[in-house]
């Protein structure tokens, strides 16, 4: 009788864990990964593998030797950062740049704040934006989809939908091509149907709530619809939804637990902010794509949103 546990209530737990959520998101990303393997072949595999391996290794080394604490790489959050970083890179990016991106993502984006749960910005996006600014040429040459390509850095390159829109030249891919993922772009962002499938999976498993994705996508749709109606020179809403990293960003990057607001009302504000900023950068900024910047800017506003937007209390009007 001497070994009974004593603790305050509750005495049972749901069994939910950080790992369960992280691996759930990873599972949701599997269809999109297959799409990228199909269209970008070997390059997609190399970039993803290098990114994941280096993210995990950097997190392990930093926790063990710099922070001198028990390693928690097993929870899958470093793997997820690695996958998301890779999904935001072109599939012909040289290995050393990928490793550098992973180092910035984990070392600066995450561990310098104290590790999972304390970072302010989405680590994968920190890595991605660092690379975008440091290596603009490599980061904006996109391989042309080629079924099961065995080429890596020596692939044929072309423009993305958003660059085409920005430059106002060339023919856009058809809607069917956009939905399937047969278009230029970062390796994980192309397969619209696959990404939506993953998003539905996360909603069903209750890993995330609908608020952020719906707010982002709805805002972009509404905003571009108004602009398109006012001036048909702007692309129509479906083109905007299916191009660039919008679906990947709205479903998998903006919904990152740590860097998004905690109350549902806050999530809606945050999502609308991302949608507005993305559209503004895409249509009026000098970059063709604005998702990463929009999410990072709203990440910075998250503490403010958390302070001022509280959940609705019981008994409160």
């Amino acid at each position: 009788m001497n070994n009974l546990y004593m603790a305050p209530s509750p005495h049972i737990h749901s069994g939910d864990s950080i790992g369960r959520n992280m691996y759930g998101v990873l599972l949701a990303l599997v269809p999109a990964f297959f799409v990228s393997l199909y269209y970008f072949g070997l390059g997609a595999l190399i970039v993803t593998a290098v990114s994941v391996a280096s993210c995990v290794l950097f997190e392990y080394l930093i926790q063990k030797y710099l922070m001198k604490e028990e390693s928690t790489v097993g929870d899958g959050s470093a793997i997820l950062t690695g996958v998301l970083l890779a999904f935001n890179l072109p599939s012909n990016l040289p290995v050393w740049i990928v490793i550098l991106g992973a180092f910035v993502a984990i070392g600066i984006g995450k561990m310098s704040f104290g590790g999972l749960g304390r970072n302010i910005f989405n680590p994968a996006l920190v890595g991605r934006v660092f690379l975008l600014i440091s290596f603009p040429a490599q980061m904006t040459t996109w391989p042309v989809p080629e079924v099961m390509s065995m080429n890596y850095t020596d692939v044929e390159t072309g423009a993305t939908i958003l660059t085409l829109l920005k430059e106002g030249s060339g023919d856009l891919p058809s809607y069917a091509q956009m939905l399937l993922g047969n278009r230029g772009g970062s390796l994980g962002e192309v397969g619209a149907i696959a990404l939506v499938l993953g998003l539905i999976f996360m909603l069903v498993r209750r890993i995330i709530t609908w608020h952020i994705p719906v707010a982002v996508i709805g805002t972009v749709f509404l905003f571009t619809a108004i602009l398109h109606a006012a001036n048909p020179a702007f692309a129509s809403p479906p083109v905007h939804l299916l191009s660039g990293g919008l679906l990947l960003g709205a479903g998998f990057m903006a919904t990152d637990y740590v860097t998004s607001p905690m109350s549902r009302r806050g999530m809606l504000i945050y999502g609308v902010g991302i949608g507005l900023l993305t559209t503004v950068i895409r249509l009026f900024g000098s970059y063709p794509e604005g998702m990463s910047f929009a999410i990072l800017i709203m990440n910075a506003l998250t503490p403010l949103i958390n302070t001022y937007v509280k959940p609705k209390r019981f008994g409160e009007k």
Partner: peptide
């Protein structure tokens, strides 16, 4: 000697409000 194992938050105030101790 300990006669049970405390498994709650490691904080004296919380443990004290709960029970007599380990």
């Amino acid at each position: 000697p300990k006669i049970n194992r405390y498994d709650g938050a490691r904080n004296c105030s919380i443990a004290s409000a709960l029970y007599a101790g380990e």
